[in-house]
Design a protein around this nucleic acid. Structure first.
Lengths: 226, 226
DNA sequence: AAGAAGCGGAGGAACTATCTCGACTTCTCA
DNA sequence: TGAGAAGTCGAGATAGTTCCTCCGCTTCTT
């Protein structure tokens, strides 16, 4: 959205020099990886070092950190809206809802930066809220379909979805280092709570943390905060 | 635990001067309020200013921020363990469990600092983990009782409790400014998910956020992070 | 081989928060 | 009442961050 030349810019004003092209690719790859694993708090120096270039080189392509983040996450955020539409394409309304929630959480689990972008709001609000606007009616429809099929409790609404994702996303972050699939356990519980009714509960899909794991997760959690 | 004279020290080595006594009380009151509303990230200058004293005065009583926090939250944390025991005292095993979870969340809702102390681990780990050790067997017993009564699904375990509190605590924080009781909505969902089985779901106790509230909450959330 | 484009990375600039220090004020007690 | 102990204040020393700039040097293109 400004003077940085995007990797996929249409009306390229000038082709990059060969070495610059290669470095740009390295920077984007490194940034993707660094933001995914360490979150958006990762510094520009981290990204540059990881890419094997100097910070100055990063700033030659991206005027500031925002711009880099924007370039990286534009498509990822759009992909989330697509997940919701995919859910609607499911024949089974309940499974459509479940698969959306699950895949959205997988996306958060795979990419700490994405999770922060969605909920921390310090970065890229407009892109996110744009995606949210797109998603809202689709999510409402997902809920309506499931309710009409008698699967979903009466009073769950579209705006519950962000809160449910936030809750479960917290588990994703908390247990990332110790039991990366733990969120599935709590997703199962929450989904059972969203159902209209049910008989005996199916077994939970992932074991609970044991005490040492809990301690370890508490430790890792702390450091990840700032 | 060091050179600060605690407000409730038994073997008082020397009585405080009248004005110092009054200032100490002001400091403790101010700190309680500031940490409760703004979280542990509040600065010592915030506390001092709120108490109407200089920072130096705060540092005369408490060698550092940790010590002040420790002095403030010792009893609060102990009170949480008591909540769990209270739950066991309930005749109805299910209601005992519910009341513990609910009251622990009320405590988090009333005091941002307490919530951060419990889960952020940057401060006062030993006190917290001490309380956790005390609580663990009681929580396990709460679960066992409820399961034996046929209320609770089979495979929920003691170490699930911290994660459930963390999930719901996130909702507490997120919606604090906009709908302070919203967590009760998601607690209801989670509790229904924890049940062994159920028929039609009871109506949810608090309305979902509407779009403007959601936006407002996202905004407040962001600023509260750093 | 000239000149344009690009590169590196030390360090400037701007925060932010904790904690210190020493000149000044207030209290206590004989 | 007045001497000296205790307490107060808050500017600023200190330390830790991170973003971003700048310019001498290198590499590419033509």
């Amino acid at each position: 959205m400004s003077r940085a030349r995007d990797a996929s810019a249409e009306p390229q004003p000038k082709p990059l020099r060969k070495d610059a092209e290669r470095n740009l690719r390295r920077i984007l790859d490194a940034a993707r990886e660094v933001f995914a694993t360490r979150g958006l708090g990762a510094t520009m120096d981290d990204v540059a070092h990881h890419a094997g270039v100097g910070v100055g080189t990063v700033y030659r392509r991206f005027a500031n950190k925002e711009e880099l983040i924007d370039a990286l996450f534009e498509d990822r955020i759009a992909a989330l809206a697509q997940l919701a539409r995919d859910g609607l394409a499911h024949d089974d309304p309940w499974l459509g809802l479940v698969s959306f929630m699950e895949r959205a959480l997988v996306a958060q689990a795979d990419d700490r930066g994405l999770k922060e972008l969605l909920f921390d709001t310090a970065h890229g609000q407009q892109r996110v809220s744009h995606a949210r606007e797109q998603m809202a009616p689709v999510v409402t429809e997902l809920f309506e379909r499931a309710r009409a099929a008698g699967c979903l409790r009466d009073d769950v609404e579209g705006p519950d979805m962000p809160l449910l994702q936030l809750m479960l996303g917290t588990v994703v972050d908390f247990s990332r280092e110790v039991s990366p699939q733990l969120w599935r356990r709590y997703l199962t519980i929450v989904l059972d709570g969203l159902r209209a009714r049910r008989d005996d509960a199916a077994p939970l899909p992932v074991p609970a943390l044991d005490e040492p794991q809990l301690d370890a997760a508490m430790g890792a959690w702390k450091t990840s905060l700032r």
